[in-house]
Computed example of a mutant assay.
Amino acid sequence: MTANRILLALIPATMMVGVTMLMPGIEHWLAAFGKTAQAKLMLGRIGLALPYVTAAAIGVIFLFAANGAANIKAAGRGVVTGSVAAILIALMREAVRLAGIASNIPSGQSVFAYADPATVLGAFAAFLAGVFALRVAVKGNAAFARPAPRRIHGRRAVHGEADWMGMAEAARIFPDAGGIVIGERYRVDRDSVMAVSFRAEARETWGAGGKSPLLCFDGSFGSSHGIVFAGSGGFKTTSVTIPTALKWGGGLIVLDPSSEVAPMVVDHRRRAGRKVIVLDPASPATGFNALDWIGRFGGTKEEDIVAVATWVMTDNARAASARDDFFRASAMQLLTALIADVCLSGHTEEKDQTLRRVRANLSE
């Protein structure tokens, strides 16, 4: 992305300086189209301002063309450089011209009174382009946005009167001291990367994300219930679950099927004095032995083994053919025999009489 950033900065600056340097003299060509002395004078003055106005137009057009780019701030800095260069060139040319006529100016008059209005107008156009480019260099894509999102009014006031909460009010209602993280205290739609799709691996798409103060709910008002809607890969875990697990000081139950959250937060919560229990199916030390109750609570071992096999097999909700029933019954008998072999044969030590051993025997 560094090469892209360099190109976005160099291209507009080079084009603007090139136009400013190469177009002078066009006033003579334009003046030739005039039929009268007044028309020739007007076209000549337009030609004097044209190099600087053209440079300003190139800069502004380039910025609008780059709108939405992740590195648009670099383009803004490039146009600022080109605008400053165009203004300096205009000032130097005008200074040289005024120095040549300074000896002929009547006493008591300022040499600046003889400054060429067309050149001044062209330099002012370059100045305006530079001001806009400076705004883009500072705010990025947000420089092109409206000051507030467009509101859609409904026929009734149920939704049509809703408005965006100010950041000061949001900070008062959801202070950083709360434990349930609901977001960051800044307007994404006003960020420099508002028009760029967020990509976790591309730092230039982050904007102020990850650096702004948090908005946190302490559960002190309302029903304290909340729900987050986002599609798969919408960063629900990284933006809400993990920050909340790090900040929330009370009890917490997290369903983490992918085993992503626990490795990130368990050490932090333990250092904070919280007792953390992780039920990880992939860890042999986690869970309970589903076979250690067999024969201990009134039923025979054979009956309990059949019950466990039934739990493992579960019921088949769909309509099955006679062929399916045959294979299902055969699988049930095989599973029952494997469990019985582990629990009743005497070849397996009591500590190893688990479903893991049943699975290992089945895979042999």
Rank of each mutant, 00 (worst) to 15 (best):
A126H: 03
F127S: 07
L128K: 07
L128M: 13
L128A: 07
A129F: 04
A129N: 02
A129W: 00
A129C: 15
V131W: 12
F132D: 00
F132I: 01
A133C: 11
L134Y: 14
L134D: 11
L134G: 12
L134N: 14
R135K: 14
R135N: 13
V136T: 00
V136E: 00
V136Q: 02
A137E: 02
A137G: 08
A137R: 00
A137D: 00
V138Y: 09
V138S: 15
K139L: 10
K139S: 09
G140V: 01
G140L: 05
N141R: 07
N141A: 06
A142L: 11
A143Q: 02
F144W: 08
F144C: 06
A145I: 10
P147K: 14
P147E: 11
P147V: 08
P147F: 09
P147W: 14
A148C: 07
A148N: 12
A148L: 12
P149I: 12
P149M: 13
P149G: 06
R150E: 11
R151E: 10
R151I: 12
R151M: 12
H153P: 05
H153Q: 11
H153C: 07
G154I: 06
R155E: 13
R155C: 10
R156P: 00
R156V: 10
A157P: 04
A157R: 12
A157E: 12
A157I: 10
A157T: 11
A157Q: 10
A157S: 11
V158P: 06
V158T: 13
V158D: 11
H159P: 03
E161K: 15
A162M: 13
A162P: 06
D163S: 12
D163I: 13
W164S: 07
W164T: 12
M165H: 05
G166H: 02
G166A: 06
G166L: 06
G166V: 01
M167S: 12
A168Y: 14
A168F: 10
A168I: 14
A168C: 07
A168V: 15
A168Q: 14
E169Q: 10
E169C: 03
A170D: 00
A170R: 06
A171I: 03
A171W: 04
A171Y: 04
A171T: 05
A171P: 02
A171E: 10
I173A: 09
I173N: 08
I173T: 11
F174M: 02
F174C: 00
F174R: 01
F174K: 00
F174P: 00
P175G: 01
P175S: 02
P175R: 03
D176W: 07
D176F: 04
A177M: 04
A177C: 08
G178E: 02
G178T: 05
G179F: 09
G179R: 07
G179Q: 04
G179D: 05
I180H: 09
I180W: 08
I180D: 03
I180C: 11
V181K: 03
V181N: 03
V181R: 00
I182W: 03
I182V: 15
G183N: 07
E184Y: 06
E184V: 05
E184P: 05
R185K: 12
R185E: 08
R185V: 05
R185Y: 03
Y186F: 15
R187D: 14
V188H: 10
V188G: 09
D189T: 10
D189H: 15
D189P: 01
R190E: 10
D191T: 04
D191R: 09
S192T: 04
S192K: 09
S192V: 02
V193R: 04
V193M: 04
